[in-house]
Design a protein around this nucleic acid. Sequence first.
DNA 1: TCAACATTTAGCTAATTGGTTAAATGTCTT
DNA 2: AAGACATTTAACCAATTAGCTAAATGTTGA
Lengths: 116, 116
Amino acid sequence: MLMSDSSKGLNELHEIEQVFKALAHASRRHILIVMNARGGNMTAGAIARRFSCSWPTTSRHLRMLANAGLVTIQKQGREWVYVLESKTLQRVVGEWLNWFNVEHPLSDLDSIKETE
Amino acid sequence: MLMSDSSKGLNELHEIEQVFKALAHASRRHILIVMNARGGNMTAGAIARRFSCSWPTTSRHLRMLANAGLVTIQKQGREWVYVLESKTLQRVVGEWLNWFNVEHPLSDLDSIKETE
DNA sequence: TCAACATTTAGCTAATTGGTTAAATGTCTT
DNA sequence: AAGACATTTAACCAATTAGCTAAATGTTGA
């Protein structure tokens, strides 16, 4: 998909937003860790059985992870297989974190007016 | 402070929880980025002036960042200087993220049938 | 086609969060 | 001591979130 620099910037901001919101809840972080430990692929049922909350609640957590791009879904018959997208997780969080490694010239952000 | 292994584990979980909750809001991530760009030290006023929301709102965001250990406070006269703790940020988020780099022994369980 | 299965979606409520304005706390200057 | 200054805390309200139960969707197999 072609897009302008500013659209790309907005999309990146949106991605960061979705990812950090998804990571804000302990259950969702836990789901990612469990999926990772089990090789990155699990059915919804296998995930839901590991948690004490109801299936619909886990289902919604999974949807939020999917919206953030941290998992993808592959329907296989009547099972839905969730696939951990650890590359996306690494990229989005890692790149954000990297801002705090680099020396940034003051002039970069100094002129930006916050408007939120 | 001395503590048992399990207490240490609980404290680490608590730290992760606080940090990811703090990072869940765009304004708080923004505050960290601005502080970093300005060298890691800013007064509450200098921070608050950059945002369009009211001072008490920014003040609360700062308190949440402080509770997570991502900033510390140094009172200097009538000014409160906030200090970015980028080491803590790097350590907590980086170590969590690192789980998704490593091959975990549990992934051997992948071949074991889950449902029973 | 019917029933059992795997899972999500709908609809509701309780708890949490983020925003506001007004009052309070503590410091500096004269 | 008085008043300006820097900032937080208190109290309140609106929006969002996370949990639940019940109903719906789509799949498999007799």
